[in-house]
């Protein structure tokens, strides 16, 4: 995973609550067996009509947001299915940061495995950011969002912050605890399946 760097772009406002992972990437695209190339399926049913033409009223089809890396959405973003394809689609499309008043648990956790920073902010601040036309800067190291008017601090678990900043392979880290895992297995009461 690439280390997370400072990001400065305009925001893409997605003015919806309860955006579920079925909307982020519809099920017909879950049959692929690789991780790459999901960006073209992002928000597919909102982006394209039945004839696969772009719907002009959907925000991602507005050229002004083409280079935006920051998605700002409503409450309970990423609810529903555990599909990590939703995060792969956001990342492949070009988003590195998602800001919302709250996230569903599995989606939130999936973000950190793929170099995406999910930021939780109060509803008022999220709404303000949704209407901001200037570029904003995301500084993960200092946990602050810098807008032309102000600096907005955000909180994040230190362990997860580190994973993003260093771009760490967390399996390699975990396997360093091999002795502890073996010790646990020796005293476990739950037997093998077979």
């Amino acid at each position: 995973m690439e280390p997370f760097k400072k990001i400065k772009t305009i925001v893409t406002p997605l003015d919806k609550v309860n955006v579920d992972t079925d909307q982020i990437v519809p099920k017909q695209f879950l049959k692929l067996i690789q991780k790459s190339g999901f960006g073209k399926f992002l928000f597919y049913n909102w982006r394209y009509d039945e004839d696969n033409h772009e719907k002009q009223d959907f925000v991602l089809n507005d050229k002004k947001y083409k280079n935006s890396k920051i998605l700002v959405a409503g409450d309970n973003f990423g609810c529903g299915s555990s599909r990590e394809h939703a995060v792969w689609a956001l990342q492949d499309y070009g988003f590195s940061v998602v800001i919302a008043p709250s996230f569903a648990d599995i989606f939130y956790s999936n973000c950190f495995k793929n170099g995406i920073l999910p930021i939780v902010l109060d509803e008022q601040t999220v709404e303000k950011l949704q209407h901001m036309h200037d570029e904003i800067e995301i500084d993960l190291e200092n946990q602050v969002i810098i807008t032309p008017e102000e600096q907005i601090p955000f909180s994040i678990d230190a362990h997860r912050k580190n994973i993003l900043l260093e771009g760490l392979d967390d399996i390699a880290q975990t396997l360093q605890f091999g002795d502890e895992i073996s010790k646990f297995e020796k005293q476990s009461k739950i037997p093998s399946v077979l």
């Binding site: 555990s82 599909r83 995060v87 956790s109 999936n110 975990t174 396997l175 895992i181």
Partner: peptide
């Protein structure tokens, strides 16, 4: 439920 990265993590480490 877990995501695919966590599936890989559990396969590799059972944790």
């Amino acid at each position: 439920g877990i995501g695919t990265s966590e599936v890989e993590h559990v396969l590799a480490s059972q944790t």
